[in-house]
Amino acid sequence: MSPGARPGRALVIDGPGRHRLTETEPARPGPGEALVEVAAAGICMSDREVYEGRRDPGFVRYPVVPGHEWSGTVVAVGTGVEPSLVGRRTVAEGFRACGTCERCRCGETSLCSGGYAETGFTEPGAFADHVTVPARLLHLLDDDADLRAAALLEPAAVIAAAVRAGRPRPGERIAVVGAGTLGLLAVQLLTASSPAGLTVVDPRSARGEQARRFGATEAVTPEEAETSNGSYDLVIETAGAPTTAASSCLLARRGGRVVLTGMFTPGAVGIDPVHLSLSQLEVRSVFGAPSWAWSDAVRAFGLGLLDPAPLITHEFPLERFADAIALVGGGDPKTGKVLLRP
């Protein structure tokens, strides 16, 4: 067992619909690795897909300890890692990028061509008392950082990538489609760009009210948004609903910019190529977060520009994983971010 690490437990999904809580003894971290005591881990829809067996087989490896959204404190490090990291509060990138392929060398670590590997999907994740990660993936937090809120820095990094891709400029009209975790985090980051107007599109009135508290100037339903088609300089799509890629492109003005961050399923409505061409839209997509986006998110968190804490509505111990996972994607508008607290 590693010095400073206490015995613990891990939540293992052996296959679709089958999970167990097992006793673990944290191993001494290997060369270049850090052992982190988990403070909190968020559950998202991709975790539910893993549990239900709906995730693409190329992006999961059973049995697996899930948990890719998390925060914690370094308790031990392997050889070649700076010893002063022990005791530091931290989060870590999920993608285990190779660092040597062309895309990684260009800084696009979320597009690594060296083979897919990600904490919580192919590598043991943070639904456990401890998680071991390559130390090069750590992003250190302030000594007084709220680790409960910091567990949401993984989705925040995705949104940081989307916002940088969208290049918001002061005085622009911006729309955010979807007011889930990604959408509400987007509102916080986009508010800092001083838009002339920041509209959130979501059918749930309670989410719209929360978006206003986070800085949105208005919240409308998808039906109401249709009256503003062609009005926005920048549209950031976060919902991943079957129609939102196409409808987001309709919201953008001619020559506008659209960034897609939602995870779409087969059969989603396609973008009209005639509209795309005639409107000269710039359309980008975001999958995961490269290293620089993590840096952006952690910096914004440290400066107080990003406060994920109000998004958290439920917290459960590892023993109640079944109750926690049932809430995620269950359709209750009162359910926000669900955390596991080892």
Rank of each mutant, 00 (worst) to 15 (best):
G4R: 15
G4K: 14
A5L: 14
R6S: 15
R6H: 14
G8T: 03
L11G: 05
R18A: 14
H19E: 06
R20H: 13
R20C: 13
R20M: 12
L21R: 14
E23P: 11
P26E: 08
P29A: 10
A34R: 06
V36A: 01
V36P: 06
V36R: 06
A39H: 12
A40R: 09
A41S: 09
V50N: 07
E52Q: 09
G53H: 03
G53Y: 00
G53I: 02
D56L: 02
P57N: 08
F59I: 13
F59V: 13
V60R: 07
V60P: 11
R61M: 13
R61N: 13
Y62I: 09
S71P: 08
V75S: 11
V77Y: 08
V81C: 11
E82P: 13
G87P: 14
V91M: 04
A92F: 04
A97G: 06
C101P: 11
C104D: 11
C106M: 14
T109F: 03
S110C: 05
C112T: 10
G114M: 12
G114W: 03
E118R: 15
F121C: 10
E123Q: 11
E123L: 13
A126I: 15
A128C: 14
D129S: 15
H130L: 10
T132F: 12
H139V: 14
L141A: 09
D142P: 12
L147I: 08
R148E: 15
A149H: 00
A150D: 07
E154V: 03
P155N: 01
A157L: 04
V158P: 08
V163N: 06
R164C: 02
P168H: 11
G171I: 04
V176M: 09
G178P: 02
L182Y: 06
Q188D: 03
Q188H: 05
L190T: 04
A192Y: 03
G197Y: 00
V200M: 01
V201I: 14
V201N: 02
V201R: 05
D202S: 03
R204L: 14
R204I: 12
A211S: 07
R213W: 04
A216D: 07
E218C: 05
E223P: 01
E223L: 00
E223W: 03
E223M: 01
E223A: 08
E224K: 05
G230W: 10
S231I: 03
D233M: 11
V235S: 05
T243Q: 06
T243S: 08
A245C: 09
A246M: 10
R254C: 02
V258W: 06
L260H: 04
L260K: 07
T265I: 00
V269A: 10
V269L: 10
D272W: 03
H275E: 15
L276M: 12
S279W: 09
V283R: 00
R284H: 11
R284P: 00
F287R: 12
F287K: 11
G288I: 09
A293W: 08
W294F: 15
F301C: 02
P308H: 01
L311A: 06
I312D: 04
I312F: 00
P317F: 01
F321H: 13
A326R: 15
A326L: 12
G329S: 03
G331K: 07
K334C: 13
V338M: 02
L339P: 06
L340N: 05
R341P: 02
